[in-house]
Design a protein around this nucleic acid. Structure first.
Lengths: 145, 145
DNA sequence: TATAATTTTGAGACGGCTTATCAATTTCAA
DNA sequence: TTGAAATTGATAAGCCGTCTCAAAATTATA
């Protein structure tokens, strides 16, 4: 099965495409393969990164495709400064962000206890968690001075 | 003392103005009074809200002033969607959100244990938290069936 | 108080990031 | 294979926030 090539993300994408009568294209496959190698990336960065693989790939297509990934639950958009970061949910599943409001530095962290408490909160409210977003904004040690 | 009218925020602002040789203006007072009534607001929303009080107040002035509040520690900018939300720092009773990906239902919750763990994570990484954002995405009990 | 120096304002121009448009191309089901 | 439907690339358009600058307001100085 060709779709096994990129693992569960490809499955998620194909499922989403089928469900919404969308098509599987060369560009979408290319962008997915590149995206899965990242923890998070901007559309612009991906545009430059893929310029060699396909010089004609348009920036609009990258934006559209990354947004498609968000709809399919593979990516998650995060706004910082004036740009949008597209996070790889599979990497992210267990890592959240500490974001310095001074210099923009981003530190990733994991905390099982927090995740466990999140599950409890969800269960208490009758929810089944699919994904989450936790961002702590503050000043890093350097910017505090 | 006239500056007591809006409490400690006015003190913070005047202190900041004095320190940086900036001036206290009618517009800054107006915008501060409106800002303090909000938990968070966008520049655009404030523009419309103040249109009656002062039809000539410019949008640029609102942006400049909200950014000034950030510098003075009264407000905190946070990017949400394509817009910037200016959070009122003095309102720290912030709640987090459970969001149903099926029907869009939003449930607010608070969890002190999670907050405590967040503080720990931040401290361990040398950060001082100013604010945070926690969103749990999943299916509510109704949408799961 | 009058005057001078400095800052702020408002209106609109501008720039960066993202989305919309549309003709040509590609995909996919029949 | 064929035709309907979706996608693409190029670029125009849009949105948000900042910058510019002359006029106005505020503060310091005399």
């Amino acid at each position: 099965m060709a779709s096994g090539k990129y693992g569960k993300e490809m499955e998620s994408l194909k499922e989403h495409l089928a469900k919404h009568h969308l098509k599987f294209t060369r560009q979408r496959e290319l962008i997915l393969s590149a995206f899965l190698r990242q923890e998070h990336i901007t559309a612009e960065a991906m545009y430059h990164q893929l310029a060699k693989a396909d010089p004609h790939l348009g920036l609009a297509t990258i934006y559209r495709t990354l947004n498609l990934f968000c709809d399919a639950g593979i990516a998650q958009a995060r706004h910082f400064g004036s740009q949008t970061q597209y996070d790889n949910v599979s990497h992210k599943g267990h890592h959240d962000h500490l974001i310095c409001t001074g210099c923009g530095k981003i530190v990733e962290f994991e905390n099982c206890e927090i995740e466990k408490l999140q599950e409890e909160v969800a269960t208490r409210n009758g929810f089944t968690i699919q994904t989450h977003r936790l961002e702590l904004y503050g000043l890093c040690s350097r910017c505090r001075h």
